[in-house]
Simulated scan of single mutants.
Amino acid sequence: MRDSRPQSIEYLFETTEGQNMLQSIQQRAIALNKLNRAVKGVIPAQLHPWCRVANFRQGILVLETANASWMMRLRYEQSSLLSALRAQILPSLTAIDIRINPTLAAKAQESAQESSSQSAAEEKSAGRQLSEQSAEILRSVASRSPEKLRQTIERLASLAGESTRSTSRNK
């Protein structure tokens, strides 16, 4: 059981066995980050935002996932993940423990919303264009339409090749 009593901050800076507590925490974080990148290189791409390495202790890799459905998907990949990680980076790996962490779902959803808003902004900046082939089809439809509709369709067909962002609705 962990010692949860308050401790002095000087405890973090004390040197024991040539290394202070903060250095060991930093090294552990770097190792877990490296392991997380290795795991993401092995699992399918759709699992990347929904899965991360939580810990590695006593030969057991602890993975966190967003919800039960992603946990089941990860369990299907568990045996291939275990053998790949043993071969690549962790020969001492004996098992993989998968746990659900709901906060991971919120973070993955936020990142998904950010990426979708970026792609929507890129679409808006690109604008849409009417092809020449579509313009010809519109002109043939306009020739068989009533006068007012014909004028509107011909005006639309005249936009072929132009970006819709550069046109004016007051023509």
Score class of each variant (00 low, 15 high):
residue 1 M to A: 09
residue 2 R to K: 13
residue 2 R to N: 10
residue 4 S to P: 06
residue 5 R to S: 11
residue 5 R to T: 13
residue 6 P to H: 00
residue 7 Q to R: 10
residue 10 E to A: 13
residue 10 E to T: 09
residue 10 E to R: 15
residue 14 E to A: 11
residue 14 E to D: 15
residue 16 T to M: 11
residue 16 T to S: 12
residue 16 T to D: 09
residue 17 E to A: 10
residue 18 G to T: 13
residue 20 N to K: 14
residue 27 Q to M: 10
residue 29 A to E: 09
residue 29 A to I: 08
residue 30 I to L: 12
residue 32 L to A: 13
residue 35 L to C: 07
residue 37 R to F: 09
residue 40 K to V: 00
residue 41 G to Q: 03
residue 42 V to T: 08
residue 45 A to V: 05
residue 47 L to R: 02
residue 47 L to M: 05
residue 50 W to Y: 10
residue 52 R to Y: 02
residue 53 V to G: 01
residue 54 A to R: 06
residue 54 A to T: 02
residue 57 R to V: 06
residue 57 R to M: 08
residue 59 G to Q: 04
residue 59 G to Y: 15
residue 66 A to W: 02
residue 66 A to E: 02
residue 67 N to F: 03
residue 68 A to I: 03
residue 68 A to G: 07
residue 69 S to P: 01
residue 72 M to F: 03
residue 73 R to Y: 01
residue 75 R to K: 14
residue 76 Y to M: 08
residue 77 E to K: 06
residue 77 E to W: 01
residue 79 S to V: 05
residue 80 S to Y: 01
residue 81 L to D: 03
residue 85 L to M: 14
residue 88 Q to F: 00
residue 89 I to V: 05
residue 89 I to R: 03
residue 90 L to H: 00
residue 91 P to S: 07
residue 93 L to M: 07
residue 93 L to S: 03
residue 95 A to I: 08
residue 96 I to F: 05
residue 98 I to K: 00
residue 102 P to N: 04
residue 102 P to A: 05
residue 107 K to W: 02
residue 109 Q to V: 01
residue 111 S to K: 04
residue 112 A to T: 04
residue 114 E to S: 10
residue 118 Q to R: 15
residue 119 S to F: 12
residue 120 A to P: 00
residue 120 A to R: 14
residue 123 E to Q: 12
residue 124 K to S: 08
residue 127 G to F: 06
residue 127 G to D: 03
residue 130 L to R: 09
residue 131 S to N: 04
residue 132 E to L: 05
residue 134 S to Y: 01
residue 138 L to V: 11
residue 138 L to Q: 13
residue 139 R to K: 10
residue 142 A to M: 12
residue 145 S to F: 11
residue 155 R to V: 08
residue 155 R to K: 07
residue 156 L to A: 15
residue 162 E to R: 11
residue 162 E to H: 13
residue 163 S to H: 13
residue 164 T to Q: 09
residue 165 R to V: 10
residue 165 R to K: 12
residue 168 S to H: 14
residue 168 S to D: 14
residue 169 R to N: 12
residue 169 R to S: 08
